[in-house]
């Protein structure tokens, strides 16, 4: 039987932080551990586990919605050279952060 400690040894757990409005789709959880080797794999695992997130994160063409920012630690994945193919490590954190903007006109 695999316990959590053994799982740590064999799987590459990393954490995805979920913003307040999307926790409706994660049973209220504010962070989700996933096992993935790249940023893209991590996001796919997330929406597989919580399908309600898919339409909120991705447009019909499969790309991230324009207002959805995903940061790998302190870096916007859109500006990483390998983008969603960027390799991840167990200590990495992905943060999903919808944009905040507006104005009086």
């Amino acid at each position: 039987m695999t316990n959590k400690n053994n799982k740590k040894n064999y799987w590459r757990d990393m954490t995805i932080h979920i913003p307040t409005p999307l926790r409706t789709y994660t049973n209220g959880l504010d962070s989700i551990p996933v096992t993935a080797g790249t940023v893209g794999d991590a996001l796919q695992e997330l929406v597989t586990a919580y399908p309600g997130l898919k339409g909120n994160l991705f447009a019909a063409d499969g790309k991230l919605r324009s207002f959805v920012n995903v940061y790998l630690n302190e870096e916007d994945i859109r500006y990483l050279s390998e983008k969603e193919a960027t390799p991840t490590t167990p200590t990495d954190e992905l943060t999903i952060i919808p944009s905040i903007a507006g104005g009086c006109r």
């Binding site: 409706t24 959805v68 919808p98 903007a101 507006g102 006109r105």
Partner: peptide
């Protein structure tokens, strides 16, 4: 404003 609602994404 129209800009405020267009760029608001934090439901709740």
């Amino acid at each position: 404003s129209a800009t405020d609602i267009a760029e608001a994404h934090w439901l709740g």
